[in-house]
């Protein structure tokens, strides 16, 4: 049922392993057998409509929620979710967060630094560097609650980087930001990516991620629909490799033939339509059609899908958003 979004072409090692992750709220399944591997150094976009289960997945990875089943692993370590060791490796920026009244930017950083057990000398030095990076150097002595929304968000990123995590996770980092702050945020993340950090960003807007991410995963109703490098997914679509086969009778035979055929991946089977992903050459398609007709399958339609990443997303997640 679920699709393992392993991205093999990366730099070899994966940073984040999510295996068979499931989260139930009572009888409701928010995350359904999700498996996902994210390579080191990637800027990974996690897309899906509201309620797809992105936040739930992220919170499980960060140790804020217990999974009903499945496992999460970082790199080659054996640290358990929620352990101190794991927490040291993750920097988390939640989707919504507030700040304290009456606390200055410097003190804010100082507090979180000491929560990681860092020495105050190191914190001071790192705070300077990080505030420089997120363009807040001149705000060191300013109260955090007076910062603009975008500044708070960047401060939160700086805070999440304080303990030098291997993996930075941002949940909907641009929700509630004005366009200018969005651009600044995007530049900051690209910058961090070029510095070699592995970053995971969730969003419900695909176009926002497709510009900056090098790989994405699309999630809907708790399931991962597809994941991979952006080029691969693009190619998959622009090559028109997704086929719809409409069948009047001989459904079982057709399904069997398609299953046996190399290079064919059945995506969905409906009452009289099969959707497949085809990775072979054009001649093989005609051979495939011939084979089905020979076996008394009555074909009424056969077409390739055309489209953009956006239409793929809309189609895959169709009916998912309430």
């Amino acid at each position: 049922m679920s699709l393992c979004g392993s991205i093999e072409k990366g730099k070899g090692i994966n940073m984040l392993y999510i295996n068979d992750l499931t989260k139930n709220y009572g009888s409701f399944t928010a995350v359904n057998h999700l498996s996902l591997h994210i390579p080191e150094g990637d800027l990974f976009g996690f897309v899906g409509p509201n309620g797809a289960g992105k936040t739930t997945t992220i919170r499980i990875v960060c140790g804020l929620l217990r999974a009903s089943r499945g496992s999460v692993r970082i790199g080659s370590t054996a640290a358990a979710v929620g352990s101190k060791e794991m927490k040291r490796m993750i920097g988390y920026v939640p989707d919504f967060f507030g700040v304290y009244d009456n606390l200055k930017v410097r003190e804010y950083m100082d507090m979180y630094g000491s929560m990681y057990g860092m020495h105050s000398r190191d914190i001071t030095k790192l705070t300077d560097d990080l505030l420089e990076l997120v363009n807040l150097s001149d705000k060191k002595e300013v109260y955090v609650d007076t910062l603009s929304r975008g500044m708070k968000q960047r401060l939160c990123v700086a805070r999440a980087l304080l303990h030098n995590p291997r993996l930075l996770i941002l949940d909907e980092p641009s929700s509630g930001l004005d366009p200018r702050a969005r651009v600044e945020m995007k530049e900051l993340l690209k910058n961090l990516h070029s510095m070699g950090k592995t970053i995971v960003i969730s969003s419900h807007i695909l176009s926002e991620l497709s510009e900056m991410c090098n790989s994405i995963g699309i999630m809907n109703r708790g399931q991962l629909i597809t994941a991979g490098r952006i080029e691969d997914i693009m190619q998959q679509i622009s090559g028109g490799k997704r086929m719809h086969i409409q069948i009047a009778s001989g459904m079982e035979t057709a399904t069997r033939i398609l299953k046996e055929q190399a290079g064919v991946k059945i995506e969905s089977v409906r009452e009289n339509e099969i959707m497949i992903l085809f990775s072979g050459a054009d001649e093989e398609i005609s051979a495939l059609i011939g084979l089905m007709i020979q076996n008394q399958v009555v074909l009424t339609g056969f077409y390739r899908e055309e489209g953009s990443l956006e239409s793929l997303f809309m189609q895959l997640t169709g009916g998912g958003a309430q």
Binding site: G63, L64, K84, I90, Y92, F97, G98, V99, M115, H163
Partner: peptide
């Protein structure tokens, strides 16, 4: 919890 700063706290090394 209302500010969700509690979540951030829980993701640090504070037990």
């Amino acid at each position: 919890k209302e500010r969700q700063t509690f979540d951030i706290m829980l993701t640090t090394c504070m037990s």
